[in-house]
Amino acid sequence: MNALRQCRFLNTRAVHQAAALTKKLEAHGGIVIEHPLIAIDMPADFSPVRQALHLLEHYQWLIFTSVNSIRFFFQLLKDEGVDLTLLENMKFAAVGGQTAAALEKKGYRAAVVPKAFAAEHLADELVNVIKSGERVLFPRSSLARNVVVAGLERVGIEVDAPVIYETVYDVSGAERLNRLLKAGTLDVILFTSPSAVHSFFQQVSASVWENSRHSLRVAVIGAITARALTDYRVDDVIVAEQHTLDGLIDTLISEREMLRVASEFKRGRNNDSE
């Protein structure tokens, strides 16, 4: 299990999510530095989501587009003392295999999980299955794109989309991030969300990035995150074929020979300069 031996990865996931990716990389011999670029927190104003939870019987569909939304939703149900039997007759939709799996761990199966893990595809599938008069509750991130709500409302489906958690840029380690890039020892930077991409480029100086970008590979979990990188003229990106952590690992392994050669070349170059 050493397919990624000696490759050095920068894991940019939030603190509470980083360990899962780190363990998978290390299991294949990768060397991982964790550096969170985003943080997840409770919303400043709970009133919209609280109101929705206490009117749960008025909804027929629940949409989740992230594991975090499930985590916060069920925690709030518990905190607010909402009767879980109200969920028994509801239908669920989820974006991504990990989100659907997290929902199943709570005891509920998603009726709709689009094959392509993107919100656009979820909206397209839902308009064909949501019946006239059914209402939708979509607890979402503060940075969630509006494509699901817009897609459903366009055909007259009523959607309530209260913010259930805040996604904020974690800039506390900006100096460390620039030092890591200057050191030239990283091989691959991993992004699993567009917000992490935007946080990264908000913190890294233009000169540091320009001097380091040609000796690095960038790998992402899906097309939406890859699209965010194009805003910063980063087009040479490794994109997971399956948009899950396991899919990302599999794609990295398929690129292992190129990563290994680049890593060994960099190690040799750094040793020559010492």
Rank of each mutant, 00 (worst) to 15 (best):
F46C: 12
V112L: 02
E274W: 11
S199L: 04
L252M: 14
S205F: 09
G156H: 10
E158Y: 11
Y232T: 00
A100E: 00
V188L: 02
D45V: 09
L190F: 01
E175S: 15
L152P: 06
N146C: 06
D187F: 01
L53S: 02
L122I: 08
A3D: 13
I63M: 05
N11L: 01
Y165G: 01
H198D: 12
D246L: 02
D79Q: 15
T99G: 08
A93L: 11
T244S: 15
A94R: 11
L252S: 11
A119E: 00
A119L: 03
D160A: 13
I238A: 07
E134M: 06
N128C: 11
D250T: 14
H28V: 09
D83Y: 00
A123M: 05
L137S: 09
Q51R: 12
R176W: 09
R233W: 09
R269F: 10
T225K: 00
L190K: 00
V32P: 10
Y232A: 03
R260D: 10
E125Q: 15
H28G: 03
R233V: 08
D235E: 13
V168Q: 13
V148D: 04
S215W: 05
L10V: 04
V220W: 05
A27Q: 14
E158N: 10
R154M: 08
T251N: 10
L84Y: 11
D160F: 03
K23D: 12
G156D: 06
F92K: 12
L53Q: 00
I189R: 00
Q60N: 13
R135W: 06
D79V: 01
S66K: 12
E104W: 08
T230W: 13
C7N: 10
L190E: 07
K24P: 02
G29N: 04
V163P: 05
L245S: 01
N211A: 13
V127H: 02
T12H: 01
L245P: 01
H35Q: 10
A150P: 02
V15C: 03
E166K: 15
I70Q: 02
T99N: 12
A27I: 07
I164H: 06
L21M: 14
D83A: 09
A3W: 08
V220A: 09
D160H: 14
S199R: 04
M258V: 15
P43F: 08
R256H: 09
S195P: 00
R5F: 13
H35C: 15
H16M: 13
E255F: 13
L259D: 10
D45A: 07
R140C: 09
H121C: 12
Q98F: 01
Y108Q: 02
F117M: 10
P194F: 03
C7P: 00
V136Q: 05
L245H: 07
K115C: 05
L4S: 04
F117V: 06
R109F: 14
A183Y: 03
F117E: 11
V95H: 07
P43Q: 08
D235I: 08
V171G: 10
F138A: 03
L21D: 03
Q6F: 14
A39E: 15
A240L: 00
R217N: 12
V204E: 04
R109T: 15
V218K: 00
D41R: 12
L21V: 05
D83M: 00
S193K: 06
I40V: 13
T230S: 12
L55E: 11
W61T: 05
A223D: 07
S47N: 09
H121A: 15
N178F: 05
G184R: 03
E210A: 12
S132G: 07
V237Y: 06
I224D: 02
